[in-house]
Nucleic acid binder design. Structure first.
Lengths: 339, 339
DNA sequence: CTGAAAGCGCTAACAA
DNA sequence: TTGTTAGCGCTTTCAG
């Protein structure tokens, strides 16, 4: 490897002090335009690249954000990563990923270590970690800067980004009602995953709004997985008075519904309408393709990283920080109820 | 944040020198057991955590590995990340993710920057980046340590990990032949993605081995995506003498085949057998569930990280470094040919 | 607007 | 087996 130029080399070549070079590199004010150009030329000539480790040690910041998640959906995680990274790159930050177990005993300690070792300057939490009270509490106490995606509790703890997904669940339910369905099955999300379970509230609100009585047998407890969706669907379809539409709290479970219906020879969407939530890749790779809700995950994560960086710069961030909109995607799996 | 203890504090409390503490922390030899314990006690008492930035600067290594990828399959990327991270954690490393564009002009420069800024000590390249000659060349020249997953070219450049996936493609084709299929359509992978396109060789070898003449019209050029798979399927199914089985080079394209067949009212697997490759989540979320090939991706990535860390420690790594085995998963989408 | 000096917290090289 | 002395390459502080 070619010997790397240091800030001293640049300073010498430009005929200025180290500090001036530092100012130019960091876009600090108080440098004459002419000086700035001279330094820029020297930097270019030497192909100088600041050492991150030296910067980190001296400035006591790593210029790295940590992304925490415990989510089995690969597409969700990839989207969050992509959004966060896009912002990071623009701002000169890198992203350290840190998958973990939301039910681990040592979760808080493990995460605090990241900050204590000065590996990350701040953290982005995604559901269901956004709602782990102990973790949130621990970060607040240790004064580690962080932002959350889709938290449902203790929203004052830190800035956050969320969507109107409860409203979208309401709209989706209304759409099914408009199609003439009166018996709409619902598959709830994993109890530990608040952001998903709250979609249930949208379902309930829509029923109430339309004066439909709430039938407890139409609601099944799922666990966000394909298999759990399939099991819930089996129970719903076994009902003497089975639903004509099933709304699952996420796409994986909705896919389970569709597969279970296929195996029973139920024609979709004519005999059964199915709706999901998330617009994961499976939603359009399945037959019939799934009517679902798309959240702007990439944008949310980008916004979250943006808020975090703002926070790191000491700027105050007003809360609630950002609420973004979901969109219903009507595809093949929903249909007018049959007489 | 509580004032963090430094190595000096530990040394003072333990009544030894800074260097001895350093030795204990880094598990270096030449410390008496008693001293080691004394230091360990002091570390525990102060809850001392070494600063990564200071370590990085002094030792000139970041203890961070970089993971490079340009792969649209979320599940593939997540699996690679999981495998690499598992190894990293055991070895005290962190993982920086770096998605990029394999056809970008500045790819090599951009990647070299990561190493030059001392952000990463070494890199893991995944397909299709494993086969970007300029990038590989650039890393070799800059003496940046790296390992590759599933490279097909210039294998002497660095250690690598691969699977016997060409053999698996051969086996899968044989399996279809055994089921009585003689007209087996094949959907090739994206030309830029060598690791996928080479599966075609397995298909060809199986035909040859079984004395089946090669029919050019049965082979379609796909681009790894669901949509391209669907388009290829449409062309194959439009053939006057359409195939009774279609083998797609990956699951996304196979899913496209299944959906296209559904829309044409073709009963699967009775009228058409479909096989894929990769065992992505869609493979079992689709109807009929997909017969496919599972590569041990998590293990491969773990092994790759292991090799890289070995390399960083100056140990020599023999090449070819590791070849891992694929497994065919027979599910619902393949069936005896109909008379 | 610019610069000199003093570290950041650790490891490396060398002594003892 | 242990300790001492120098830095690593930057940013910060404070002086000009």
């Amino acid at each position: 490897m070619v010997a790397k130029a240091t800030i001293d080399d640049v300073a010498a070549l430009a005929g200025v002090s180290m500090k001036t070079v530092s100012r130019v590199v960091n876009n600090e004010p108080n440098v004459r335009a002419a000086t700035r150009e001279k330094v820029a030329a020297a930097i270019a000539a030497l192909d100088y690249r600041p050492s991150q480790s030296a910067r980190s040690l001296a400035a006591n910041r790593s210029y790295v954000l940590g992304l925490l998640y415990d989510n089995p959906s690969a597409s969700y995680v990839i989207d969050v990563q992509a959004g966060a990274l896009a912002t990071c790159r623009r701002a000169g930050y890198d992203l350290l990923i840190h998958p973990c177990k939301h039910d681990s005993e040592e979760l808080t300690q493990e995460v605090l270590l990241l900050a204590r070792q000065s590996r990350v300057d701040g953290l982005i939490l995604t559901p269901p970690l956004s709602d782990i009270a102990e973790l949130v509490q621990g970060l607040v106490e240790a004064q580690v800067p962080f932002v959350r995606l889709s938290p449902t509790e203790n929203k004052a703890a830190c800035p956050y980004v969320q969507t109107n997904d409860q409203e979208a669940a309401y709209d989706m339910t209304c759409k099914l009602l408009e199609l003439g369905h009166t018996r709409i099955g619902f598959i709830a999300g994993h109890p530990d995953h608040k952001a998903v379970t709250e979609r249930y509230l949208g379902y309930l609100a829509a029923l109430k709004e339309n004066d439909l009585r709430y039938d407890r047998t139409l609601v099944e407890q799922g666990y966000n997985s394909f298999d759990s969706g399939r099991e819930c669907a089996a129970r719903l379809l076994d009902l003497p008075d089975a639903p004509t539409a099933i709304f699952a709290s996420n796409d994986d479970m909705a896919a389970g519904v569709i597969i279970e219906a296929h195996h029973r020879g139920i024609a979709m969407p004519v005999e059964l309408s199915v709706a999901g939530f998330d617009d994961t890749p499976v939603a359009h790779q399945i037959f019939p393709s799934l009517t679902t809700v798309r959240q702007p995950i990439v944008e949310m994560a980008g916004k979250a990283a943006e808020l975090l960086i703002k926070l790191l710069k000491g700027k105050s961030v007003q809360m609630p920080a950002a609420i973004m909109s979901c969109r219903i995607l009507e595809r093949e799996s929903t249909h007018q109820v049959q007489p």
